[in-house]
């Protein structure tokens, strides 16, 4: 059990500054997901927790203790790598017990642990195989078992599901959530996939260009994005954004926040448009609607329209967000909010 804390951490590789003066607290026992586009510094953070890269400045604390000078193997952390990093020359059993052997765990204890862990992750029949004789999903489980068997206080995962096919990935997401519930340890999970972040996280840490954009629970980050980046990174399809034409302010609404109708209705924001594309996904349908100025993605639960059809798009006032010129969201109690709402209403049915 351990909380993790970054205090004024800067990380630079030669002259390339990845992270500058970052402060972050990762709560004990929580499933925290670091998410962001590639190159945003999320893996860099993870590697600093593991001790694989040393920070240029600042300190990293695990369980309140500065671990800067502690070797990776003594930090009480375990990591699942993106490519799993299994030892190709060892069998599954040897892979799992390698860390135990190094920590001088007795043979009986080792056997007991390996048996029970491999039972948990369903690897028992494969203990004497080499990793090269396993499927991608099985290798993933070996990597997981290797991390679990050490009973770490912190679990680090670097995009562990990205090499699996979509079906297996969905299944593993559920298993990881259950695993976290069972172990109750701190999980730090890195991904670029916002679906993984939304589905598994207790807390999402959204990063871009080495900075934390927002740190919140999935529902908060979805409903109250801090800024335009958060609004457009989280959610599929991303939030629709358009220019308000006033102070450089942008307005936005979620794809499911709009209603498509064949007849004109009275909503706060309403425009006429034409359906350009239609993606029928089963339980929902996603339309791309082109208006005079914009193209909006609209998610409907019913599949009523066809391509090239003229439709009316309406959004309720409660579903509308505004973003300042510096991309920060304008809160509902901001003095300008009402004015921007009125301005948007003025653009009716362009």
């Amino acid at each position: 059990m351990a909380a993790i804390e970054f205090v004024n951490v800067t990380q630079a590789f030669e002259k390339n500054v990845i992270i500058k003066d970052l402060n972050l607290k990762i709560e004990d026992g929580k499933f925290t997901v670091l998410v962001g586009p590639s190159g945003c510094g999320k893996t860099t953070l993870l590697r600093m927790i593991a001790g694989l890269d040393r920070q240029t400045a600042g300190s990293v604390l695990i369980g309140g203790e500065d671990v800067t000078d502690i070797a990776p193997g003594q930090r009480g952390v375990a990591m699942v790598f993106q490519n799993y990093a299994l030892y190709p020359t060892m069998t599954v059993r040897e892979n799992i017990e390698f860390g135990l052997k190094n920590n001088k765990v007795s043979k009986e204890e080792r056997n007991r642990l390996v048996e029970s862990i491999s039972e948990t992750v369903g690897l028992s029949p494969y203990l004497n195989r080499k990793p090269s004789a396993l499927s991608g999903g099985q290798r993933q489980r070996v990597a997981l078992a290797r991390a679990m068997v050490k009973k770490p206080s912190v679990f680090l995962m670097d995009e562990p599901l990205s090499n699996l096919d979509a079906k297996l990935r969905a299944q593993m997401r559920i298993e990881l959530i259950e695993l976290h519930k069972k172990l109750g340890t701190t999980f730090v999970y890195v991904t670029h996939d916002q679906v993984e972040a939304m589905s598994m996280a207790d807390t999402i840490v959204l990063m871009n260009q080495g900075r934390i954009q927002q740190e919140a629970a999935p529902e908060d980050i979805y409903r109250q994005p801090n800024n335009l980046f958060a609004a457009q990174f989280i959610g599929v399809p991303p939030m629709n954004v358009g220019d308000l034409g006033m102070d450089g302010v942008k307005f936005g609404f979620r794809p499911e926040g709009a209603v498509l109708t064949a007849e004109r209705t009275d909503s706060h924001f309403g425009v006429r448009g034409r359906i350009v594309t239609r993606e029928m996904l089963g339980s929902e349908t996603i339309y791309q609607v082109k208006t005079k100025q914009h193209a909006f993605m609209i998610k409907c639960t019913e599949d009523q329209f066809t391509v090239d059809q003229e439709v009316f798009l309406g959004v309720d006032a409660s579903k509308i967000f505004f973003f300042r010129q510096d991309e920060h969201r304008i809160a509902q109690d901001d003095v300008r909010h009402a004015a921007y709402m009125a301005a948007l209403r003025g653009q009716q049915h362009e």
């Binding site: 593991a50 070797a71 990776p72 375990a78 990093a85 390698f98 190094n102 290797r146």
Partner: peptide
């Protein structure tokens, strides 16, 4: 692969 060495470092080898 470098990651194997990193995994070994985390395994306290």
């Amino acid at each position: 692969p470098q990651t194997i060495y990193e995994a070994a470092a985390l395994d306290n080898a």
